[in-house]
């Protein structure tokens, strides 16, 4: 199987950036759901907030890398 080219890598990174944004959304929803559950340990919400922030930042980093990679690929022809 040939190695993926720059454009393919960029497409995958874009998809991953979108997936990480979805992960951030899932974590927000999870946090909201668990706030109603008194059995949830308090430390979890701080951890989830940190993870949400990281997912948002990582999503932006991957989108930026995808854009830079796409820009580095010479136009066809």
């Amino acid at each position: 199987m040939p190695a993926p080219d720059g454009e393919t890598h960029a497409r995958i990174l874009d998809a991953d950036a979108a997936e990480l944004a979805r992960c951030a959304t899932r974590l927000r929803e999870l946090s909201a759901r668990l706030r109603a559950d008194p059995a949830t340990p308090g430390w979890l919400f701080d951890a989830l907030n940190a993870h949400i922030t990281s997912c948002v930042v990582a999503s932006a980093d991957l989108a930026e890398a995808a854009a830079r990679l796409r820009a580095s690929v010479p136009p066809p022809g």
Binding site: G6, A58, D61, L62, R68, L69, A71
Partner: peptide
Amino acid sequence: GALRARRALLHAVTSRKGL
């Protein structure tokens, strides 16, 4: 362009605030 792309990728996989 490749250098800038590699810098952006390196940042993405080493950033303490992100991945």
